[in-house]
Every structure is written in C-alpha cells, then in structure tokens.
Amino acid sequence: MPIADGGRALRKAAAEAEDQDPGAGAPPLSGGGGAPAPVTRGLLAMRIPVRRPGVWAAGAVLLALALAAVCAPLLTPYDPIATDTAATGLAPGSPGHPFGTDPLGRDLLARLLYGGRTSLLVGLTAAAITVGAGVLLGGIAAAGPRWLDELIARAADVLLSLPMLVVVLALAAVIGPSLGTVVLAVAATSWMSVALVARAELVGQRERLYVRAAYALGLSRGQVLRRHLLPGALPPIASIAAFEVGHAVLTESTLSFLGLGVPPNRPSWGNLLTEAQAHLLTGEWYTVAFPAACVVVTILAVNVLASAVARGEGRAW
C-alpha cells in the first residue's frame, strides 16, 4: 500500500533495503533542485521529501481519519444505527450531539465515525488492489511476450468500453452483495487506466539511455526494474491512484444505493450522502456537508501524498 500510509511502509522498506546491500547505507542525500535536504531510501529507491510540511500534514490528516474510524466506540457513546425518536433532526451544536442528528434521531458524529470505517477500508483497499494489479499487469505487458501484451491491452480496451455499472452489476449478481464485492468491483473496473499508463511509462523508460547504462553495470532485469524503471513510472501512477481512492469511495456509495454494497442502514460516507439527498433543499445542510467534507479531505490528503512522489528531474533554462 504505497499510497495509503506511505511514510510507514517506506520507512520499513528502507530498513529492508539497507539490510540487503550494506554498501548502499549511505548518508541521506540532497533533495530537489540541488538544495540539500534529507531523504529516505525506499524499496523502489523512491525519494520522500522530508522537508515538505504539506506532505506530513496530509499524512497526519489521513492517519487521524483512520484512527478516528478505528477508535469510533471510544469517541462516541452512540450506536450509529440506533434511532432516537426524542432527538430527531437536531442541528449541530445541540447538547450531546455536536454534529446534530438525522431525521431518524441517529447521531451524525457516530454515523460519520463508523461510516469512515467502511469508506476508508473500501477506498484504500480498492485503490491499493487497483494500483497493485494495474502495475503488475502493465509490467507484464511491457516486459512479457508480444501476445501477452496484446491480450492485456485488448482486455483493458474491452473493459473500458463497457459501462462500469453493467460490469459491477454482473459481478455482484455472481458473488452476492458484500463489502468484498464492492472492493472487487471497484478494482475490476478501474485497473485498466493504471495498467495502460504503467505499460506506456515502462516502455518509454526502457528505451532511455540510463537503463542501458544500468544494464552495462551488470544489473539484472529485476534490479533495473526495481531501481530505475518503476520509480520512473511511479509519479503518473501515483496521480491515478489518488484519483482511484476518491472513485472507490463514491462507487461504494453508488453500489450501496443500488443495494449491492453494504446494507443501506449501515453507515458509510457514501450512504450518508445518498440519504442526505432528500434533505438538500430543506435547510439541513449539515447532513450533506459533514460526510462530503470527509470525502473531500480524504481525497485531498491522498492527492498531496501522491504528489510527494515527485518526478525529481532537474530543469535548466
């Protein structure tokens, strides 16, 4: 999961990388543009700009959201599904209900926190699977035999030409509605863009002189792939991955609305938004605003994290 919790995964990876080749345990070196800034060595030889506070802030926000979702029972005494007829439609700031309640008297804060569990789980897992599968298939297409390349490219074309919902409905009909179905459906309908971009990037990189230079140093195909090709292909993939997180969160709500995802009474940010449609024009703005804000903040944070995977190519005038 290079995107979800980049910091942790990469620091772990850095430890592994230095175990593997002790000679490379060099002191951290410069950042972009020649200005010295410490960086961490990663498994894919990625550079994490440690001095960019925005990246750390984004990571912290995402971590806070995930923690809040995990620790939901500690943060709110309410059951997100239990209705309370004595407290229906309360505005935010009401005593005991800081975010207010919905027309059925369910505490909105509790629903947001528990909803985060579903949404973050689906969003991040589906995006991770999408990117993983996409990079793998793209890599196979770029490095493997011609027929495999054709097969993957054509399969991607066919899937891209089908309406997503049709594919998802067919999948759900076969497997049955569940959280797993949602994750699988999102991954199955969005790996194509990642795979095609990864393939194109890898093929483009493969022809570059520094790859030839790396082979001339006696590196194996795997080493070249890991040290030079994948890090080069990563920035565009990271942008797509960030987009996929948001896409997965929203797809989950679409599927739930159709009765193919999580049960409609179980909260997720998507479900909350779907329910809130009815209140959009009645002045209960907060039923829309809070879940929408959660989705937006998550997507923004993931995007900022993805931008940390900068191209890092210098530029002269």
Partner: peptide
C-alpha cells in the same frame, strides 16, 4: 546526462 537516472544524485 542521459545515462544517469534523472532521480539520482552524483553519489547514487
């Protein structure tokens, strides 16, 4: 220049 990985420093 083209024979160096653009992400690398001289050291690397």
């Amino acid at each position: 220049l083209a024979s160096f990985d653009p992400r690398y420093t001289v050291e690397r």
